[in-house]
Design a binder for these strands. Structure first.
Lengths: 356, 356
DNA sequence: TACAGACTTGGATTCGATTGCACAGACAGA
DNA sequence: TCTGTCTGTGCAATCGAATCCAAGTCTGTA
């Protein structure tokens, strides 16, 4: 142990000239300064009623002056709780993910939890590494957003013995705890909106096949068409990958059809962004020639030309809900977190009555 | 200590029925299973040459089967290195920030570091809380992006005795380690581009007054005008806040002028987004009536109608550079990290020759 | 005066790893 | 056979906090 001649904690931090490894003051340094034992310091800083109020005040003052910050590392070791969670996303660069991250982070912060952000980049190898790292960090819980490779590491997650909440899980199958948007109902509302505007040739520009939310959104689209008695048109269903670039290509396929659609339901706003661009590139106009709806309601939607009609997901709120659910689970509450969030159609100007 | 009758690590994790607090296997559990001491297990898993290769192989096999993951918490306590960094952003929901976060996170991950994401929300109170939390977590280093309240907590940061790298610091003044975009040169190139297209009445739609990058970008704009011998037009310089909404209002001011500008240099792409929207709302066209340039080159720029001419910041790369600089500092390298990144003008279709 | 009980405080242990040091056994050279 | 080096391995201490338990002080009452 560092035996300072005087034991001043300030000396520990800023000792002039002495070339010993610097370190932040520990609880023992504070104890020495306050002429009490470490347990007493510990209790004083936890506002324990067991310690004399005057002693506590004095200790707190000294700790404050010394710039003492209790080590969460040491505390975590003994309490077996790190007040830390892991947040796994496929990529933070995606606006949907970053909104969720924002909600999670703020809520965690409000409860004095810290968040380990782990970006899997949709790469299975990295994803596995990332989850192992979280296990080693001894996080108290995990939130996974838009997991696309869930099956790969779910066994790993179980091994960690910490609760896990999924947000908009993409892995087809059951998972215990989750916060999901009402994909089917949301996209159905979007399609019904288009039908109400007189559209009949309505396309669906989806995500890669097999992802849960794509399956559900497509189902909502299909249900609306069925209800309206519109026959299925397989050539109007195309795939993208949830990003703008792929959506341009997919949109091009639709526009090359002999009888192109008069409206498009896009899997998400990023796809809608690409779709609208491609429509422009082909010299057509939104919504005069083709109506477009998105899904998510990302920040840029209302600033596009024309402003995008879309289905709103309360992304930040969903992050908050996931975090709150995780708190419940972490505090030993055994009940299941199964939240389905309502999606809301936001009509702007990218949709219009079909032209006669 | 948990004394399992048999000591099987599997029993620790999945002991059927026994209602003792479950925990992940510890190094002692593995030691018991392998019939060696814990130090030997520790060395074996670190691939230390001190341990017999056969013993090491056996230990690794057993540890693997038991799903053992060394506690980074315990390791951090003794090694005084957590292999953890803090990443402070004003908000992850901002596309610029999330790109930087992405770059930082990936680079950190490649070196087996984990990232604590801390969202200050540009709120001083929260910001302080966030930094204190990082101090308690004993992070090995910190990266702060677009710090707007830097002055408030810089003293706090110094107290932590860990290296700090700022990305695009907004606090006017010197800071030791930083990665900055070439604000002045970048915006100057943008303005020169407009001047080259024949524009003379060029507006500057800035950020809130006093932020470093706004000051510098404005300086670049001004320098270009000066060089071209264009007299200063104070009425053409307006303020936003870096977001689309405020930019709409600022743009409205410009459009209400008796003699509105024929081109606008926007502080960033978000502002450009708002500016373009407002131009449309007023029934004008980009670029026929007014040319618009942005700054950042966010993902949506090339999908706008028209695609946005802007100044590119290699955001992800900047995050990577910040992280690499931090690695150098954390490994005791005392040299100063002072990186200035080149900005590149990307000409798309939101700028055109001034109409005659 | 003595003693129960409330209030404070300190000693010792613990969490799960790393690491300096001691030591046992193998084996070679004298 | 003895000594000495070289390998492996284990013991014990340590990191910084939390917490159980014991012990001390003080007050009030019998």
């Amino acid at each position: 142990m560092l035996k300072d001649d005087e034991g001043r904690a300030g000396g520990v931090a800023h000792s002039g000239g002495v070339k010993r490894p610097l370190r932040q003051p520990s609880i023992k340094d504070i104890a020495r300064l306050a002429r009490v034992s470490h347990p007493t310091v510990s209790r004083a800083l936890q506002n324990s009623p067991l310690v004399n109020p005057q002693t506590a005040a004095k200790i707190r003052k000294i700790a404050d002056e010394a710039g003492y910050r209790a080590s969460a590392v040491a505390r975590g070791l003994v309490t077996r709780r790190t007040r830390t969670i892991g947040l796994v996303v496929t990529t933070v660069a995606d606006p949907f993910a970053s909104e969720v991250v924002c909600g999670v982070e703020q809520t965690a912060n409000d409860h004095d939890y810290s968040v380990f952000l782990a970006d899997s980049n949709a790469d299975p190898v990295r994803e596995k590494k990332v989850v192992q790292a979280l296990a080693e960090r001894r996080v108290d819980g995990i939130i996974v957003t838009s997991s696309r490779v869930g099956a790969l590491y779910l066994p790993l997650l179980k091994e960690m013995m910490v609760p896990i909440v999924l947000v908009n899980d993409q892995y087809p199958g059951e998972f215990v705890h989750s916060v999901m948007i009402a994909n089917t109902e949301g996209m159905r509302a979007a399609a019904e909106h288009l039908i109400g505007l007189g559209h009949r040739r309505i396309a669906y520009l989806g995500d890669q096949l097999g992802y849960q939310s794509d399956v559900e959104r497509h189902a909502g689209y299909q249900a609306a068409l069925d209800d309206a008695g519109i026959a299925a048109m397989p050539e109007l269903v195309v795939c993208g990958d949830g990003k703008a670039e792929a959506a341009m290509e997919a949109m091009e396929k639709l526009l090359s059809l002999g009888d192109p659609p008069t409206a498009v339901c896009c899997y998400n706003d990023m796809s809608a962004l690409g779709a609208m661009r491609q429509i422009r590139v082909r010299g057509l106009r939104v919504p005069e020639d083709i109506s477009v709806v998105g899904f998510d309601d990302l920040f840029f939607g209302s600033y596009l030309q024309p402003p995008l009609t879309t289905v709103r997901q309360p992304m930040r709120k969903m992050g908050q809900m996931a975090m709150e659910g995780l708190f419940a689970l972490m505090s030993g509450n055994e009940s299941v977190v199964q939240i389905k969030v309502d999606a809301e159609l936001v009509v702007r100007e990218s949709t219009a009555p079909v032209r006669s």
